[in-house]
């Protein structure tokens, strides 16, 4: 018998954990999405049916949820790009010795999980919260603006939660652009906006796409933030899936909803890959 390669031995537990515990269930999901569970029963009928998908496609409620989810995710992505780009560039160009500290601080909400920062946000955005209280004290408003229970609060929450996912990959990409590229462009007559358009933007585009994909997927599948900040009044695709899986306990239907989400993410990924190819092609063009 051949002696086993030590590298293989070292990798086996990790590959098993990721391959079997993490990846295999995705396959199962596709299968159970085609099973069904009669209304009011908890017994799953293991025979092929398209009922779940027909039910999703036929009900306007899910379409509305889908539309709202896509809208919120797109808005979150765009806001994160607009806010994240200058911050990422600041980290690379101006942060100097504070860079490690600022990066760590940006990471803090990420390791605090989905729930605790949301709990704080409730106290910021509530009718008696910090934001309304401050605006009132400044005399800018005299009646509270409702942020909770509607899209605005959810959008604020999503941007706040996922901004780090945009800033960090962007900073990595921008780090690889030597300042001398910008300086060369300026010495050749490019004003600041031109430098940005012609040099920084094309070179940072892969990082922007990567960050955008991360944020978009995170926003699309997030259910804690929309649930808490929407106060149960706003149905997104992920909160519906959560309800079906954890409360209604209709697992085949929940699986079908999950498969739809997966397909949406796949489509987003494809779009980004196409965008990337288009960029490369545009650069190659004379």
């Amino acid at each position: 018998m051949k002696r086993p390669d030590p590298a293989v031995l070292l990798l086996t537990p990790a590959l098993l954990l990721t391959g079997v515990v993490f990846l295999a269930p995705f396959g199962l999901l596709v299968a159970t999405g085609f099973w069904s569970q009669p209304k009011g029963s908890l017994i799953v009928e293991r025979s092929f049916t398209l009922d779940n998908y027909v039910r999703i496609a036929a009900d306007l409620y899910y379409w509305r949820g889908l539309g709202r989810t896509l809208g919120l995710s797109a808005a979150t992505t765009i806001l994160c790009l607009l806010i994240g780009f200058p911050v990422a560039q600041w980290l690379v160009r101006r942060a100097r010795r504070t860079r490690a500290l600022v990066t760590a601080l940006i990471l803090v909400p990420l390791v605090c999980g989905a729930l605790l920062p949301t709990l704080g946000l409730v106290n910021i955005l509530g009718t008696l919260g910090v934001l309304n209280g401050t605006l009132k004290a400044l005399g800018l408003i005299d009646r509270s603006i409702p942020f909770l229970g509607n899209d605005s609060g959810i959008l604020i929450g999503l941007v706040q939660s996922f901004l780090p996912l945009m800033i960090l990959p962007l900073a990595t990409v921008l780090d690889r652009l030597p300042v001398s590229l910008e300086e060369a462009a300026m010495s050749l007559g490019a004003t600041r906006p031109k430098v940005w358009r012609r040099v920084i933007l094309p070179l940072a585009a892969p990082g922007m796409l990567a960050g955008a994909l991360l944020v978009f997927c995170a926003a699309l599948t997030s259910f804690v933030t929309p649930q808490i900040l929407g106060q149960g009044k706003v149905a997104t695709f992920a909160t519906i899936a959560y309800q079906q899986a954890a409360l209604v306990l209709d697992w085949p239907f929940a699986s079908a909803l999950a498969v739809v989400m997966l397909a949406l993410i796949g489509a987003a990924g494809l779009l980004v890959a196409l965008g990337r190819r288009a960029l490369l092609a545009a650069e190659r063009a004379p």
Partner: peptide, 10 residues
């Protein structure tokens, strides 16, 4: 720099 017309080689 963009108005100086100075060529620069890094």
């Amino acid at each position: 720099p963009w108005r100086r017309d100075i060529g620069l080689v890094f």
